[in-house]
Design a binder for these strands. Structure first.
Length: 335
DNA sequence: AATGACTCCAACCGCTCCTAA
DNA sequence: GTTAGGAGCGGTTGGAGTCAT
């Protein structure tokens, strides 16, 4: 069975020979690809256009970066995947020289296994049920957190701020002028919700400083204070997390002195067009982030224990909203 | 040395989206 | 508004390479 797009043609399949590569490179560098369906004929190849396109994009393009993924790239992948899920093309856009296929393969062969090994669901980035059970039984190597968002990490120097996944993730979230503090209150049920991978909301502690974010890895305080909290951000309400799908405080279940986040049963989905618009904004911010991460690859990051950072970033809940500005009692929220 | 299990990744398949007619 | 063709995407497969027995 051949491709439906080229069923009339006799097409070769399987691995590409060096000669075929050469023909394709020569043709595209000379004439451009134009219509991919016409490329095989013009280039003298017995391949379908789709195959030519794939070969060029994934292997022959001159701007491709070869070799293994760096820890920084891995971090970016994990962070963006937490928000977007398996949208490999979107993720790859923020990794210069990497293709969606490459990112996908890397994820499936490496990152996924790491997450599972850390007891995290690679789809949701939440703790796997079995590990939650372990957690209840204090069977984790890490000390018991004091809140759902607590990460018991060693204090790192301030230069880590821009490198942590939390700041990364926050920065990826789209600005939405329609979201303001008026959407957020204990009584207001009409919170705008964006479809994301993980059903928890949390808030950051930014006051008037719009472009720096709390380092989640250092977040021994939280994140769950609603904006109407009189004391502002950064105050843990130990028993109150905000459930994005219902805009109700999500109760922490206490069992044997341990806290378990009660997961919402379902997420609210946005209309497709709205999600598209959000993606555009995510792209814009992810551009900023990927650039920033590259520029901030300082020594502390390089020498940090990646495995540990990896766990921190993976453990972080999603469905994040963050304060974009603060005017008196009014907060403008981005999501 | 043989072979079976496993990993990685290039390539394929089928689907959706986009756009032009 | 409909349709057809092309582009692009994500899931899956198959084979080459590696490792363990």
């Amino acid at each position: 069975m051949g491709h439906h797009c080229c069923s009339k043609q006799k097409v070769k399949r399987g691995l590409w020979s060096p000669e075929e590569d050469e023909k394709l490179i020569k043709h595209i560098t000379t004439f451009g690809h134009g219509s991919w369906s016409s490329v095989p004929k013009l280039a003298g190849l017995e391949r379908c256009g789709k195959s030519c396109r794939l070969r060029w994009i994934n292997y022959l393009r001159p701007d491709l970066k070869r070799g293994s993924f760096s820890a920084q790239e891995e971090r970016v992948i994990v962070d963006i995947h937490r928000i977007l899920g398996n949208r490999w093309a979107q993720i790859a856009k923020h990794l210069p020289g990497r293709t969606d296929n490459e990112v996908k393969n890397f994820w499936n062969s490496c990152v996924k296994k790491k997450l599972i090994a850390q007891g995290l669901d690679p789809n949701t980035h939440n703790l796997l049920p079995s590990h939650k059970a372990n957690n209840n039984g204090c069977n984790l190597s890490h000390p018991k957190p004091t809140s759902v968002f607590f990460v018991n990490s060693p204090v790192k120097d301030a230069s880590m701020d821009m490198n942590t996944s939390f700041s990364t993730l926050l920065s990826l979230l789209p600005n939405d002028p329609n979201i303001s503090s008026s959407h957020f209150s204990h009584d207001g049920p009409n919170i705008p919700i964006y479809e994301q991978q993980n059903p928890n909301i949390f808030w950051t502690t930014e006051e008037q400083n719009l472009n720096t974010f709390m380092d989640f890895s250092m977040a021994r305080f939280p994140i769950c204070s609603p904006p109407s909290h009189p004391s502002g951000f950064g105050i843990v309400e130990e028993d109150c997390l905000w459930n994005s799908s219902q805009l109700q405080p999500t109760e922490l279940d206490r069992q044997d002195g341990h806290e378990i986040l009660l997961q919402p049963e379902q997420q609210v989905k946005k209309p497709h067009q709205e999600i598209k618009a959000i993606e555009v904004e995510i792209d814009r911010k992810a551009d900023i982030i990927s650039t920033r991460e590259q520029n901030n690859m300082d020594a502390s990051f390089e020498s940090s224990n990646f495995g540990f950072d990896f766990v921190e970033s993976a453990v972080m809940p999603c469905d994040i909203m963050y304060c974009n500005s603060y005017h008196g009692d009014e907060f403008a929220w981005d999501c």
